[in-house]
């Protein structure tokens, strides 16, 4: 491994989030260092997905702040997050069903489009050149994820595992500095999980992308992540290297069940 884990790139400070009377997250603080793979684990309903939604601004926490590369965001929104280089995949695949794989991944380039509507309508020089340049970039992503054979297929027709891969492709097309993965391996068979692990490790290794990962497969989490944060009922109950977390008695009782 050539990658070097750097300073904290993203710092979450005392984040609390509630929906009416339901407390989804209570006073959670942790940081994410540059180039690391950071896993968030916890039982169902622990607030893992809410955590990701707070990071990229889909949910607004009532308290706390997000410090991204030294810049404070008390009110993050999805557009700002995307601009700042945060991209994500979704737990329940949120692809654009009516579009082909190619077009889906092309939408990941949206922020990098410089031509305006009129230029695009006339297929004018800058718009056309840009389209070709982005196509070349997207083809790199397609090669990387080994989905060349399905690039023209509407995503609705693809099997689940491939849809997950396209979802990752769309996030990668943004060339993010931080990639949030919400259960990238849920519902996959062993072979598909191995592929997905390989892609995650390669992304982290080749592009230096910082990865925040929610995953239920403990073997995978313990294998590929550098540090793990554990949530339970919206509270943080453990944080540290995989071995530390595995030895933490709170985590064992909460996560693996008291009788373990």
């Amino acid at each position: 491994m050539t990658r070097q884990i750097g300073e904290a790139i993203l710092d979450l400070k005392n984040v609390s989030l509630s929906f009416g009377g339901v407390k989804a997250l209570t006073d959670i603080s942790f940081d994410i260092r540059e180039h690391e793979i950071r896993a968030i684990i916890g039982p169902n309903g622990a607030g893992k997905s809410s955590m990701l939604n707070v990071i990229n601004g889909v949910y607004r926490p009532q308290q706390g702040e997000i410090v991204l590369r030294g810049e404070r965001f008390s009110r993050m929104n999805p557009y700002k997050a995307a601009k700042a280089g945060i991209s994500r995949t979704f737990q329940n695949i949120a692809l654009f069903k009516g579009m082909s794989v190619l077009d889906n991944i092309m939408t990941g380039r949206s922020l990098k489009i410089g031509s305006n509507l009129l230029q695009q309508a006339f297929w004018w020089g800058p718009a056309r050149r840009e389209e070709l340049a982005h196509r070349a970039k997207v083809e790199e992503v397609i090669d990387f994820l080994e989905i060349q054979h399905i690039r023209k297929t509407p995503v609705g027709r693809l099997p689940y595992g491939l849809q997950k891969r396209v979802d990752l492709g769309r996030a990668l097309a943004m060339e993010p500095s931080i990639l949030l993965l919400d259960e990238p391996m849920a519902g996959m068979n062993v072979e598909e999980k191995q592929d997905m692990c390989r892609f995650i490790l390669d992304v982290n290794d080749q592009f230096g992308t910082t990865i925040v990962l929610i995953e239920h497969d403990m073997a995978v989490v313990m294998d590929i992540s550098d540090r793990v944060v554990v949530l339970d009922y919206g509270k943080k109950i453990g944080d540290g290297a995989p071995e530390e977390v595995r030895a933490n008695p709170d985590v064992i009782s909460a996560y693996l069940g008291a009788g373990h």
């Binding site: 990229n56 889909v58 999805p78 557009y79 997050a81 995307a82 601009k83 991209s87 994500r88 979704f90 949120a94 692809l95 654009f96 069903k97 009516g98 579009m99 077009d103 092309m106 939408t107 990941g108 949206s110 922020l111 769309r170 996030a171 943004m174």
Partner: peptide, 17 residues
């Protein structure tokens, strides 16, 4: 593509910018 993205899944569209 932006229009279609909004049509098919507006939350995801917002998240990718």
């Amino acid at each position: 593509r932006q229009w279609m993205a909004i049509r098919d899944m507006d939350v995801a569209a917002e998240v990718i910018g």
